[in-house]
Each structure stands twice: as C-alpha cells, then as structure tokens.
C-alpha cells in the first residue's frame, strides 16, 4: 500500500506525462477539470496509468467522483 505522499508524487508524474502539467501544480486541492485543464479523454488515460502504477482498480462508476487530485489520492491510497 502506497502512502498518500507516494501516491501524490506518482500521480503528479502521471499528470505531467499525460497533460504536461508541472508536477508541483498537482496538489490535493486542485480540480482536474477546472484547475489543471484535464479533458475527459486525458482523465481516462490518467486512470489507466494509475491502475497500472499503483496496482489498483478504479471502476468507471468511481471515476466521476474523482474531481480533485485529493479525491484521487485518497481513493488510491485506501483502495
């Protein structure tokens, strides 16, 4: 099980790789859509990459609840 900090660091790398957002901007309070300008297709890519990186399963019906970076960190860290 990864710590929340480890998840945040890993997620920041993924968001940077997929969407070009600087790692330091990927912080818990940020909304993927409104703050980081992540479109719905990139969000799917991010979910796929998180599943691979963290060995978790994020069902489609959960993805819509992951509105902020913090939402994703806590879901992954507690999965």
């Amino acid at each position: 099980m990864a710590s929340e900090q480890e998840v945040q660091d890993g997620l920041a790398d993924i968001v940077n790789e997929i969407a070009g957002v600087p790692q330091e901007d990927v912080t818990p309070g940020k909304s993927f859509t409104d703050d980081l300008d992540i479109d719905s297709l990139s969000m799917v890519e991010i979910v796929q990459a998180c599943e691979d990186k963290f060995g978790v399963s994020i069902p489609d019906d959960q993805v819509k609840n992951l509105k902020t970076v913090g939402d994703a960190i806590s879901y992954i860290a507690n999965a």
Binding site: S40, E45, Q48, E51, D52
Partner: peptide
C-alpha cells in the same frame, strides 16, 4: 480492452 487509449479514435 481496458488499456486501449481513449485517444485512439481521435
């Protein structure tokens, strides 16, 4: 199928 990129079609 769950690893196919959502960008594939566009």
């Amino acid at each position: 199928p769950r690893r196919v990129s959502p960008l594939a079609i566009p």
